[in-house]
Design a protein around this nucleic acid. Structure first.
Lengths: 115, 115
DNA sequence: TAAATATATAACAATATACTTATATGCGCA
DNA sequence: TGCGCATATAAGTATATTGTTATATATTTA
């Protein structure tokens, strides 16, 4: 008998659905090994702040990420408690690093505002 | 140096998108180890034939499945040539078998019409 | 060749998604 | 308390998605 995890299709489909967006998938990769705050995402994706918030909400609604408020800022990170965490990590491992986006931010000094 | 496969995010997101639908994800699981024809899907999902064809087209458009005509019927199966094949198999392994849907069909004699 | 069957495509309607702008909320600090 | 900044939510709009029905195409068989 294996200890293979088994997901219900009804539950798995919505997970794939939220991952099926370039912005959200990139967000997941960005927080693979660190936390990011909303203002960083806004800078990185050059997208309005509400749009970023809405993407983050979708990821949070299915439990893939969690938020942590630090003063004015809200930091997002992978939710290690999610039943999808191990599965998620195995997917993220197969995606190219997005570090350069954060490095670019630091160069522009945009990361210093909140971190 | 590992032989880890790496997917571009721009290419990966559309794959997740097509998998982010209960019907299509179930279709993928159904053809994990066998081929199915359109009329079988119509019976299984109790959905109109055009709707089934459109779902299959989306899976085919991203290269996840391939079709093979046998007489009047068109059979669909996993596309082993897809760069996503190994990845796809690892996902399907984690989903529960949908065999009972095919067994149900046979019981009803609905599978005999084309197979 | 014509009829019957299986599948694909077209056209359309209902709903969902992903942005936008405007506004509300939450926190830190003068 | 009131202002400024960060974030969330609301409302609206354009577009995408998913189903439907009608129709076209392809194949088999009489």
């Amino acid at each position: 008998m294996t200890t293979k995890t088994e997901f219900q299709i009804e539950k798995a489909a919505p997970i794939f659905k939220v991952l099926g967006d370039k912005t959200r998938l990139t967000m997941m990769k960005l927080i693979e090994n660190q936390t990011c705050c909303v203002c960083e995402f806004v800078e990185i994706f050059q997208m309005s702040q509400p749009s970023i918030s809405q993407h983050l909400r979708k990821l949070r609604d299915v439990g893939l990420i969690k938020e942590e408020r630090k003063g004015q800022w809200v930091f997002y990170s992978l939710n290690h408690e999610s039943e999808w965490f191990v599965f998620m990590k195995s997917i993220l491992e197969q995606l190219p690093s997005q570090e350069e986006k954060l490095i670019e931010l630091e160069k522009n000094g945009a990361r210093i505002t909140c971190c």
